[in-house]
Nucleic acid binder design. Structure first.
Lengths: 231, 231
DNA sequence: AAGTGGTCTAGACCACTCC
DNA sequence: GAGTGGTCTAGACCACTTA
């Protein structure tokens, strides 16, 4: 008996038929059972191959209606949420970290609203600078909800960045992330050693443990930063 | 007999144990066979649940060594590569598109190198402006390799954007994408109706059909643009 | 009402990796 | 060499959706 087809082989064959237009955009593709018969494997194998193609946006699957080649193959890009130290080190630079400011304060209204906190709530505020080969790399401006971070009173942010401390000590369940371009304000320019008004890449992120807000952070990168990924 | 556990239920239970620190970071977790026995389901069900947790970065799996809770749960964010018209419409704005320039030319050296093309290669160049509710939204500056886009001579980019034409008419297999912040140059500022030097969000993308370069594009967004996704 | 994808099971073999 | 995850099979039932 011939060696069993792997689901990767089935997937590759399906992808070939899609990209060669043998299965053109919008066209229905054979049912799982038919494909299994044609290719000589179990339906479960075909199922796994097609399931992953659907997850990647190449085909659309609906019960009873069957599967179709997607009309607009929406390609998805994935990137890892950077732990800044790893990001710097993977670029081949020496990482350095310096705490700029730490305290308990009332957050500005936009931060308070982002985290759905009541007026007057007091949060931990941390500002820190991440460097690569001695040059400013990224400015971290973070507000932390102490109620969601037990043990944070004992954290020494002169030694470990809040970024890493939170990753290791809190269990977050979800959040939002936004990427944007901004003009550096005076404080950011001073910290990043660039001109005020320079175009800087910024990431705004909020994270939650279920309904409980954990932290809101803005990462402002030095001019020229590029976030890169493959598609 | 009790109803069979779904793989989602197994996954949720495993995630609960991870997030509750019942399975702390770095600790080994039970083998698939043991978990299947304990939870009362087939090993394949446990396998699927844990396989997806590994893909999402919560656990690390190695043959013979078993599975462990990841020390640094690397969260991944996914976003769809925007078809600009869809992007605008999903924000609730009226989409408009205008061709600014089209021709055949020798690309600047950086573009030529990005696409691994020889000196002197001639490409199709297209500049276009995408608008939302009449306001400039995104400037598209694109170079296309005609050898990789059969039929492009008949495309009328006054009617359809090169973005959409390429999605519908070429089969690309991969590429790179980079996000960055730039200061708008004079031409960009004029097209986007902003001040020269304003901080703008830019996406640089190259796409390939196997070894054949298809296109290199820079999308420059009007000031204030945010690219948002959930994690 | 009926057809399709979604999933579970029980068993089996294999590939990789650590000891 | 032995143990673990990775995968395939054959069969079955179910849920959802559309005709």
């Amino acid at each position: 008996m011939a060696p069993a087809l792997t689901w990767q082989a089935v997937q590759a064959e399906a992808l070939r038929r899609i990209q060669s237009r043998e299965w053109p955009p919008g066209a229905p593709i054979p049912h799982e059972a038919d494909l299994a018969l044609e290719l000589g494997c179990a339906r479960a194998t075909v199922n796994r191959a097609l399931r992953e193609l659907a997850a990647e946006g190449f085909i659309e699957r609906r019960r009873k209606a069957g599967s179709r080649v997607a009309l607009t193959p929406v390609r998805k890009a994935t990137f890892e949420i950077p732990i800044i130290r790893h990001d710097v080190e993977s670029r081949g630079h020496a990482y350095d970290y310096r705490l700029l400011d730490q305290g308990v304060d009332t957050p500005p209204a936009p931060v308070r609203d982002l985290l759905h906190l009541p007026d007057g709530a007091r949060l931990i505020h941390v500002a820190a600078l991440h460097s690569a080969d001695g040059a400013p790399f990224c400015l971290e401006d973070r507000w932390i909800n102490p109620a969601a971070a037990p043990g944070i009173a004992t954290a020494d942010f002169r030694v470990i960045s809040p970024n890493e401390w939170l990753v290791q000590n809190t269990a977050f369940s979800g959040g939002d992330i936004a990427f944007t371009a901004r003009a550096a304000d005076a404080a950011q320019a001073a910290a990043l050693a660039c001109a005020p008004g320079a175009a800087v890449f910024a990431i705004d992120r909020t994270t939650w443990a279920g309904p409980l807000p954990i932290t809101a952070v803005t990462l402002t990168y030095a001019p020229g930063h590029r976030m890169v990924t493959a598609i």
